[in-house]
């Protein structure tokens, strides 16, 4: 068990280190070698500090079988987001606002905190829904236009588009 956790932690250390170095590079937008080296050193220190303290980062791992679903999830997310906004425009510019807001409960299979965070954020940015609460595997969702109060059906409509990809990307 112990070596496994250590291997996992070092993998996520590398991931976080690369991510932080990338952010440093993007923020400074300079190709000067000493700037990049300093950034990498600071990023290494911070990554070492935070991987230990914040368990959420152990869910983020760099590997092809995780990155590809992540990119696919990004694509799905962008499409859903544009759709959500067009939907919202329809509500906002209608002469009389015709909505049927309500609260429904949906279930998720995701177990890891990062996956659940990504799911909740996606729901907040996609058609007519906003996560109000999260307990256990039950998401309480405020729905702008309640189509069904059945938990199974609502789960399919709200969570469905993202869950499979997120499950592969963040376990």
């Amino acid at each position: 068990m112990a070596p496994n956790t250590r291997a996992r932690r070092s993998a996520s250390f590398v991931g976080l280190w690369l991510l932080l170095t990338l952010i440093w590079f993007a923020a400074s937008s300079s190709l000067a070698i000493e700037s990049i080296i300093t950034g990498a050193a600071i990023a290494a220190v911070l990554a070492h500090l935070f991987v230990r303290r914040f368990p959420a980062w152990t869910d983020v791992r760099l590997s092809p079988e995780r990155l590809i679903p992540f990119f696919r999830y990004t694509g799905v997310f962008l499409v859903e987001m544009v759709r959500a906004n067009l939907n919202m425009l329809r509500y906002v510019y209608a002469p009389r606002i015709d909505i049927n807001p309500g609260i429904v409960e949906v279930r998720t299979r995701l177990k890891t905190p990062v996956g659940r965070l990504a799911l909740a954020s996606s729901i907040a940015l996609t058609p007519g829904s906003l996560v109000v609460g999260l307990e256990g595997d039950t998401l309480t969702v405020h729905w702008l236009d309640v189509k069904t109060t059945d938990a199974e059906e609502a789960t399919r409509l709200i969570v469905g588009p993202f869950e499979t990809e997120l499950e592969k990307a963040f376990g």
């Binding site: 987001m81 544009v82 509500y91 906002v92 906003l130």
Partner: peptide
């Protein structure tokens, strides 16, 4: 929008995009 929740939804989505 008629209430706080729906206002929040309209504000968040459209302004993020």
């Amino acid at each position: 929008m008629p209430d706080a929740f729906t206002r929040m939804q309209a504000g968040t989505k459209a302004s993020t995009l």
